[in-house]
């Protein structure tokens, strides 16, 4: 992790990067304001900011935002619990993996967006169908990363557990899982990104609430400033979420990692 002592020097590359971004924003501003590009296709940065402040101030955004967050937390939380839980079960009892793997692989192979219509039939267009979709988007990544991490446990650690006569279950909890943590967290991070794809997509398809719903509504109203604002918002949420998972990992593992 970047320490505070190592202050980064601003290089020519950094200056060029900032200049490029500024030029792009400036182009958007001028192109839209002069009418060179229709504001259906592009939005001026100042309009995006104004739109953002507006939908926050008039109370439009917050309820939708909270609904999306809730769907993600519940769906992703369940996926984490089930993914890691099943991973542990498979590790302790390899027979259960042998039995269940083919089913999990089959469900995983289905492009999740294709079963959205079915989920809506079963669970309605509300909260539940979103949670299930996010769950399906995330659970396999978490499961397979847990199991792979467990299988990559160093032979010598397993020998130590054996020499000290650890039972199977003790070996799993004292040796295999701790050594699988990096892989588990990789899975959690990957799953977090796909969970966002899941929620936005399903809300855009059919919903009465959520950020994805707002997004498709803004699109049908040709409100490009709002579309741009929401895209930025979703991106920031996703980045913050992934970062939060990295922070949890850091809190758990940094003490024994070589820095």
């Amino acid at each position: 992790m970047e320490g505070k002592t190592k202050r980064k020097k601003i290089t020519i590359i950094n200056i060029l990067q900032i200049a490029t971004l500024a030029a792009l924003l400036l182009y958007m501003q001028i192109a839209v304001k002069t009418g060179a590009v229709s504001k259906v296709f592009l939005a001026a940065p100042t309009d995006i900011v104004r739109e953002g402040i507006e939908i926050i101030a008039d109370g439009t955004l917050i309820p939708h935002f909270l609904i999306s967050v809730e769907e993600i937390l519940v769906g992703y939380g369940l996926a984490t619990a089930v993914g890691i839980g099943l991973g542990i079960l498979w590790t302790i009892f390899p027979k259960t993996e042998e039995y269940a793997n083919v089913f999990c692989a089959a469900v995983m192979a289905i492009p999740k967006v294709a079963i959205l219509p079915l989920l809506i039939l079963w669970f309605g267009i509300g909260f539940l169908s979103k949670v299930v979709l996010i769950f399906l988007f995330a659970v396999f990544t978490i499961l397979y990363n847990t199991v792979t991490g467990a299988k990559q446990c160093k032979e010598s650690y397993l020998k130590v557990a054996k020499v000290f006569e650890a039972t199977n279950i003790e070996t799993v909890f004292t040796v295999i899982l701790p050594s699988a943590l990096p892989s588990v967290f990789n899975g959690l991070r990957l799953a977090a990104a796909t969970a966002f794809t899941g929620v936005v997509f399903s809300e855009m398809q059919s919903a009465k609430a959520g950020i994805g719903f707002l997004l498709s509504e803004a699109q049908s109203l040709l409100n490009s400033s709002r579309v741009f604002f929401l895209i930025i918002l979703i991106t920031v949420m996703s980045v913050v979420f992934v970062k939060a998972i990295s922070l949890v990992e850091y809190a758990i593992c940094h003490k024994w990692r070589r820095v």
């Binding site: 010598s156 650690y157 130590v160 006569e165 004292t174 701790p178 024994w256």
Partner: peptide, 15 residues
């Protein structure tokens, strides 16, 4: 329990 083993790379658990 009667047999103790010391491994080549120490095989301490890093965590």
């Amino acid at each position: 329990r009667d047999i103790g083993v010391v491994f080549q790379d120490s095989a301490l658990f890093p965590w």
